[in-house]
Every structure is written in C-alpha cells, then in structure tokens.
C-alpha cells in the first residue's frame, strides 16, 4: 500500500459522495491509500475568482500550506476545478516571491509551494496502466465509452500542463486498457455549463444536451468523466434535460474510477454507482 495526500473538495464530501466512494475503492484496489489533508477548506471555486481575486489565490494557498504542513509532496484532487485552482495558485506563488510571502501571512502557515497536485487520471497513470491492465478481472467488453474531459482537466494548458487541450487521449488509454471500446466524438473538451446549474439552468441544460446527443450519435453507450460537476449536470440533471428538449438519452454517466473499479472486479455498490441517477440499460 502506498499512501498519497487527498484533497476531496466540497463536492466529493457533498452531493458527489459517490465519486469519493468510487475513487477511494478503485485506488485501494490498486494499492493506493488516500489520506485527507488535515482541515482542508473549499478551493473557492468559480465564486472566488469571479468576485475576489485575492481570495481566489488565498483559499487554494491555504490548502497547499496545510498539505505541506501534513508533509505531503503530492496530493490527489479528483475534482478538476479544485485541481486547477490549486495548481494556478501554486504557479502564481512560485512565480512571485512577494506574493508567496503575502500568502504565507494571509493563510497563517508557512507556504513554500512545493506540493504537486494530481488529477484522477494522473493518479491512475502513476499507479501504472500496465498494472491496471494486468489486474483486470472482468474486461468491460460491452462498454462503448465516450471519454469526456470537460473544461478544466486540460485547460488552461499553461496551468494544468496535462494532455493535449484539443485532442486529449489519456482517458481513452486507460479505458482501452480495461477491455472497453472508446468512441471518437466531438464534445470531449466542450463545457457542460459547470457551476451555473443553480443560477442559470437553461444554459446548463442546453450545453449538456448537446454533449449527450453527440456522444450517442457517435455510438457511445456511456459517458466517462472525472469531474463531479459534469457528473451532476449529465447524470442528475439528465431527466430535466430530457424533459426540456423532449429527448430520450438514457445515457449512463460513469466516473473513470467506476470503470476501472468494475474491471478490477468491484461491485457497483462498492463503487457508489448505485447512487447515480441514470442506470446503464
């Protein structure tokens, strides 16, 4: 068992607790134990960078400092927004000594900016794709997955430095290793409407509808994501999307860790898949 730092973020401790269950179970099956960063706080999400720049650096900075304090060199932040916000703050702090000092004082902890932040795909990559492949017990031969990267897993490229922002392939590589098929489709990096779910539902419904439609048109029978917000918009809101556009999607939405877990022989319950709104038909 290796142990790495874990920054769940608010979603995974809230309505996306199925993701936490899935990520923990899947990584545990690969011999990776997650230990939570002590007393972590919200990364600030869209609200902070939309309303107050300083706060949008300070909140992630506090978490980076807490992780340093815990002695972590690397932490997993499964939510791409948290991951991006943490990396952006880290980049700004490392580039500007005065800012680093200011932030240290603001978050009341010595901050060096030395903690690296991984997204879930990277955590799986570092567990080893060959290892995953070797550990597959139930190849996912019926699956035709549309790998959905969304916005912030690959953007902004200068901050997250992960995969290609236009033609990413990293999720396909993992899903392919599970014996599943992946489809070529067009909305892999389009936005689902993100955090506007509550305030501007119409936008979310429309963007998410386009994504589901395109995935189906390219022959997918499920969509795979690593983002809790994408999951909410595509899964929890799917009934609303169907009602709004008078469409039938019935598209199962999986977290990447769900598929890996299933292939490794874990049950739907162990992975929290029973908590999804749309079941695979």
């Amino acid at each position: 068992m290796t142990e790495i730092g874990y920054y769940p973020g608010c979603a995974l401790h809230g309505s996306s607790n199925d993701y936490e269950t899935s990520a923990r179970a899947c990584l545990a099956a690969l011999g990776v134990q997650l230990r939570e960063v002590t007393d972590w706080v919200c990364c600030g999400a869209t609200a902070a960078h939309a309303l107050n720049h300083k706060l949008s650096v300070a909140l992630p900075a506090r978490n980076l400092a807490l992780a340093e304090h815990d002695g972590f060199r690397e932490i997993l932040a499964p939510c791409p927004m948290c991951s991006m916000e943490l990396l952006k703050a880290r980049q700004e702090i490392l580039a500007d000594e005065a800012l680093r000092a200011e932030m240290s004082s603001l978050v009341e902890l010595e901050l060096r900016g030395g903690v690296n932040v991984l997204n879930l795909v990277q955590a799986l990559q570092s567990a080893g794709i060959d290892r995953i492949k070797a550990a597959v017990k139930k190849p996912l031969d019926g699956i035709r997955a549309a790998c959905y990267y969304g916005c912030l897993l690959t953007r902004p490229p200068g901050v997250v430095r992960f995969d290609d922002p236009e033609q990413p392939r990293s999720m396909e590589a993992i899903v392919g290793a599970l014996g599943a098929k992946t489809v070529d489709w067009n909305y892999r990096t389009e936005c689902c409407g993100a955090g506007l779910t509550m305030a501007n539902e119409e936008t979310v419904l429309e963007l998410s509808h386009r994504i589901l439609t395109n995935a189906a048109a390219h022959g997918a029978n499920c969509v795979v994501t690593v983002c809790p917000m994408c999951h909410v918009n595509l899964d929890m809101k799917q009934a609303d999307i169907e009602r709004r556009f008078n469409a039938k999607h019935k598209m199962a939405i999986y977290y990447l860790s769900d598929l890996v877990g299933l292939a490794l022989g874990l049950s739907e319950k162990e992975l929290g898949i029973d908590r999804h709104f749309v079941a695979r038909t």
Partner: peptide, 26 residues
C-alpha cells in the same frame, strides 16, 4: 442578479463553514 446572488451566497457559505454546505447554499 440571480447569478451574482448565487456566487455571493456561495462565498458566504464558505466563509461560515469553510466547506460548502449545499443544503444551506440552496
């Protein structure tokens, strides 16, 4: 206004709890 109110409520929520309390936010 709704979007602004939402973002503002979000920030207040974090300020009070440190982490998002979805039910309270809604």
């Amino acid at each position: 206004r709704r979007t602004v109110l939402f973002q503002e409520a979000f920030l207040r929520n974090i300020r009070r709890n440190g982490r998002l309390n979805e039910l309270e936010l809604v």
